[in-house]
Amino acid sequence: MSYRPAIQSIITAIETVIVGKEDVIAKSLTALLAGGHVLLEDVPGVGKTMLVRAFSRAIDLNFKRVQFTPDMLPSDLTGISMYNQKTKEFEYRPGPLMGNIVLADEINRTSPKTQSALLEAMAERSVTVDGEVKILPSPFFVMATQNPIEHEGTYPLPEAQLDRFLLKIEMGYPSFNEEIALLTRFEKAEPLEALQSVISKEEVEQMQREVRDVHVSSAVKQYIVRLIHETRNDPFTYLGGSPRATLALMKTAQAWAYIHNRDFVLPDDVKALAGSVLGHRVLLTAEARYKGKTSEQLVKGWLDTLPVPMDREVKEV
């Protein structure tokens, strides 16, 4: 809990670059502290890349960027071993995954083969090059972006792989006033250049450890499980949340509570993150899609009706 001022300063620092996106920043930070990865989904130009770059600067992390293209190979990510004619040995040239914060831009533009290499690296936190396992640096935090508008020439991520992203965050457009503020801020200066790191890599690792100590009471656990059960039992869902989703919900809730200076999780934390955690993990039936429903709407509906447990006693619904 000692890092609360640090968290506030991260958010403040990033906000000098990203206008009015406190929620997005907090969620991204949540994913980082929970040891997961983020899928940013939105139209181009809303500041996805800017957010990631601000993140890496504020936290003094090693930033790597990959622009995904259809002709990209897995080795373009993991790095390759090249023959060094001087030493007459194969030498490992690290790919862009060897960074702390990796911006995987337009992840759906590359072939499934490359995508799965990335997702495997995200899950395993290591890559295998020429039979040799290379451990990725820690912390390892992927922020992938995806454009929901263009479909031509894209390879939509399979559901199983979406599940590997802890959170899917939508940026959204800034409000009128925020956009004015944005213009003013960028009128004469380049805030990103002026952004100083406010926290070290070691401090982030310390925070990640502390997040695991955030208490989750049995009432909150019940709430999480009940919510996941809702996703599985709703007639509009083709595929509900997996146990991995259950875990993700709890871990992000812990980090969210930590960011909000609490050492215990409230149902409010679960509610705040449910949309981002479950939105990309729930598959809708054809009927639901035909009726124009979105998974976000369904999550909102579950949250609106599911009673919040006020009891320690575990009761199966």
Binding site: L266, P267, D268, K271, L303, D304, T305, L306, P307, V308
Partner: peptide, 8 residues
């Protein structure tokens, strides 16, 4: 009340 957390 339904679906509301205590603090909401």
């Amino acid at each position: 009340v339904e679906g509301r957390t205590p603090s909401e």
